[in-house]
Design a protein around this nucleic acid. Structure first.
Lengths: 145, 145
DNA sequence: ATCTTCTTTAGAACGGTTCTAAAATCATTG
DNA sequence: CAATGATTTTAGAACCGTTCTAAAGAAGAT
């Protein structure tokens, strides 16, 4: 139980952005390829629509905000990204789709991975009738000492 | 470790709304008393600004939306309520301020308490330098079987 | 009552996200 | 290599929950 990975790289899984998109059943359009290239370089990353747009812009990629949102949702649906709920008002996405949990620095709005192997949640009661557990999210909220 | 409580009532703590407000250092105004009366009847409850406003309206209490928000924040700051982050876009509040975790029914946007005693989170790494753990939130996301 | 401070309020503003309808791109076919 | 049809992108509007603003109202002290 618990995929062992360090929160760093997944060397076995480095595909070209185009391959990755095709595997996911998404047409490798210019915009999607550019975004995939930024997102899937190896190290795990946390991002928001806004931060990705800035990054794309810095990298010289012209991508509209609507496309950023569309792409983020498509990638999430395709299992290339994971959504993380830490506060109302903003969607966070994570390129690490393996089992793992997060620190959240409340003061700065920053997420940090906790490796999947280290946290263990015990004693989850059975799901109410007709329901199954989709996933268990743990957020360790940190503030300045 | 872990306050033992069932997610139901806290009989030792039933104060009049007015007392409760005074204890929290809040003037017992008409609006705050009406909202406290709705919220702190004994059983634990989950709510949003919108749901509370509807409920207040049904109960014949005239309270503006701005006051709902103000009050929700003041109550939270005073430790009378707890915020729960389950999805971006909406603030959930919980009248159960004791240590406990939640089921979240993704399809219907409903929160259900998991009693504080049953869940155990082990293996949380030390907080990064200069940080302390504020709290550990566990959300068990459920979907239809 | 009077004065000061705190609270409530309607409505505007805000910020992040989603929608819309039109233009652009892509793949396919003749 | 058009012409066609389907998909994708886009600017900008719309949306929705939340926060702000400035003015009116209530609470408490004297």
């Amino acid at each position: 139980m618990g995929v062992i990975q360090s929160g760093a790289n997944h060397p076995g899984e480095i595909l070209s952005p185009t391959e990755r998109l095709r595997d996911a059943g998404l047409r490798p359009t210019r915009q999607r390829v550019e975004l995939a290239r930024l997102l899937f370089r190896g190290e795990d990353r946390h991002l928001t629509a806004e931060s990705l747009q800035e990054e794309a812009h810095r990298a010289g990629a012209r991508v509209s905000l609507a496309t950023i949102y569309n792409t983020l949702h498509q990638f999430t649906e395709a299992g290339l990204l994971k959504q993380v709920a830490v506060e109302a008002g903003r969607y966070y996405f994570d390129t690490n789709v393996h089992e793992h949990q997060h620190f959240y620095l409340e003061d700065e709005g920053i997420l940090i991975d906790i490796p999947g192997a280290s946290i263990e949640v015990a004693g989850v009661p059975a799901a109410p009738g007709g329901m199954v557990v989709d996933r268990v999210d743990v957020v360790v909220r940190l503030k300045r000492a």
